[in-house]
Design a protein around this nucleic acid. Structure first.
Lengths: 189, 189
DNA sequence: TCGAATTTTCAGTATTTTCTGAAACTTTGA
DNA sequence: TCAAAGTTTCAGAAAATACTGAAAATTCGA
């Protein structure tokens, strides 16, 4: 690996971090490299920078594309494929959230739904089913909320986040207003 | 593995899911088993249920304890250690968020802070640093917000989540009120 | 259609991670 | 202090995952 020290430490960190996230080292490193690069890179640039094999690079890029985390583009007068990451960090964050939702949360919800439908045989299963239902309700609530939040525009989202826990007070205040006006401002269960 | 089918599919699913999360299969399975169990289990109960070795169970339980995801307790008149998960799914969710924050987010923020402090040598490093700063700001914002949210009581949290994206409208409305009253209701940068 | 440039696949190898059984250690009651 | 019950450690085996180089496939201009 032959990179400016600042970039190198970033790339190495993401490589290590990958393992905590079920992502392999090369994939993490390549993503980090593209993220900080000031121009799109082709596969050979990446091999040169990271020091992995050409085929490994190809695999890793395919995976990053499957995650929609890198964009493929062509430069005029060059047949090679160039890769870059989206500029907007919020967009990246949203993509990541969507993909994790699809790959990890959805299958779990499906499994839970199936289990909750079954008729329990005996007390152990009955209790297990009740627990699964608690988990299901929580995941579904958080998931829907995340989806709502994802679809907010970044401006509003940033305001909301900066407001932090004060939003609780705002909420209570608004609900009082709603009651005064004779309607409930929140969704019903 | 010798479990009622409903529980077995839950346990197996969490085992598989583990790999996507950088958690090993046995750890995932044991957690799932404890989560749905209607009583605390000791290590031998777990070996019996999951079908792994005693030592593997010991390792996995240690890891789950390090994550604060299982509670250790003793039953009167029994020397063995019994394990269970917290009842409250919200508490579990919060613990998970806190631990991931500590293990994955903090180290990344530290690395980014270090890199951003450095004096860039050349244009590539300057650009990389700017990108790292964007990432840093985003992570810090989301992180602080999460911490705020974690500390809200569950009642308020559920209301907020059920409100969903409508919170954006509430927010804008409240800010108008704030302006009318001659002050800003949000935190400053 | 050919052939040069480029990308992808894949079988085998290397590395890493997980798991086990045996031994060491700890705790507790007598 | 001893012995029984229980837990943890650890070196090596087994399994899973990542990586490579060579060969196959694809793309595209002439």
């Amino acid at each position: 690996m032959n990179l400016p020290p600042l970039i190198q430490s970033f790339v190495l960190h993401f490589g290590e971090m990958g393992s905590h996230w079920g992502i392999n080292r090369t994939v993490g490193q390549i993503y980090a490299l593209l993220y900080v690069s000031d121009r799109p890179l082709n596969a050979d640039d990446i091999v040169e920078a990271i020091g992995c094999s050409r085929s490994n690079t190809s695999m890793a890029l395919k995976e990053l594309q499957a995650w929609r985390l890198v964009k493929l583009q062509h430069l005029p007068g060059d047949r090679r494929e160039y890769f870059s990451t989206p500029e907007d960090v919020w967009a990246i964050f949203k993509t990541l959230a969507e993909e994790r939702q699809k790959r990890e949360v959805e299958p779990t919800l499906t499994m839970l739904r199936g289990a909750i439908m079954e008729t329990p045989a005996g007390e152990a299963e009955r209790h297990a089913q009740a627990r699964m239902n608690e988990m299901y309700q929580l995941i579904e609530l958080v998931t829907k909320w995340f989806a709502d939040i994802r679809d907010m525009d970044v401006e509003t989202l940033e305001k909301l986040m900066k407001l932090g826990s004060q939003v609780g007070k705002v909420l209570q205040f608004t609900q009082s207003l709603g009651r005064l006006a004779g309607r409930d401002s929140g969704k019903e269960d």
